[in-house]
């Protein structure tokens, strides 16, 4: 379980996260929705240690993550599927997958075989460079790369961005499978459809603060909330 409390983060001089608090449990998908510029990516980068938290705490199963460097946070069991995918373009598919591979104390760890079973496309292109893949394949690659570290929490920053609808559906299916295998998925999205499909719990981030939380069904039944904070 990951618990974020009273998180404040600056990006340069601008005060972005203004006291964010949320909880994400194992074997579930917690989604953070919000429009552009509301602090979603800043939240992701703060959790991963890529941006320093000015104040507040990020607790993963009793270990404080705030103030640690990204590699320490990753070794504590947080993996990142970053916005814009960021594959290692000069590495082969297989090198991308094995670069950070760790068992991470998992009883049934992710291995190359399991990732290739999940994404047969990657298996066929294992010798190709990251830069040779299509957008959808790159998205699968970075998901595979992240689960190969056998994390407890998988943080995904807009994995649907720039993908064809059929690939977005596949991303949704994969998130569902990961959750069923016990992973805690923290999904940051703008894609409302994907979010309500896969989320067990939804938070809405607006102006650097959590302004609403509830289940997918509750959000579906609150047109005012959707309209005010998401414009849908």
């Amino acid at each position: 379980m990951i618990t974020v409390q009273n998180l404040h983060t600056y990006r340069g001089l601008s005060y972005v996260l203004q006291g964010v608090g949320l909880t994400a449990e194992g074997a579930s998908c917690t989604t953070i929705l919000g429009r552009n510029g509301m602090g979603k990516t800043t939240l992701v980068e703060t959790v991963m240690g890529l941006l320093p938290a000015r104040e507040g705490s990020i607790d993963l199963d009793g270990n404080e993550l705030a103030g640690k460097s990204p590699y320490q946070i990753a070794r504590q069991g947080v993996a990142l599927v970053p916005q814009g995918r960021r594959v290692f373009s000069s590495l082969t598919v297989e090198e991308n997958l094995t670069l950070g591979a760790r068992r991470g104390g998992s009883a049934n760890p992710w291995t190359l075989e399991r990732v290739y079973d999940l994404f047969p496309n990657l298996s066929r292109r294992r010798r190709n460079r990251g830069s040779d893949l299509s957008g959808g394949e790159q998205q699968m690659l970075v998901i595979g790369r992240a689960v190969m570290t056998n994390p407890r929490v998988l943080v995904m920053d807009e994995p649907s961005e720039g993908l064809a609808p059929v690939i977005v559906d596949l991303v949704g299916t994969v998130i569902d499978q990961l959750r069923q295998q016990g992973l805690c998925v923290l999904l940051v999205e703008q894609n409302y459809g994907l979010a309500v499909d896969v989320a067990d719990k939804i938070y809405i981030l607006s102006g650097g603060q959590i302004v609403w939380d509830g289940t997918s069904r509750e959000l579906e039944q609150s047109p005012d909330v959707r309209h005010e904070h998401l414009g849908v």
Partner: peptide, 12 residues
Amino acid sequence: VDDREMVGAMGI
């Protein structure tokens, strides 16, 4: 060389 920030985020 590609993306050193992501290398750190991989636990290296």
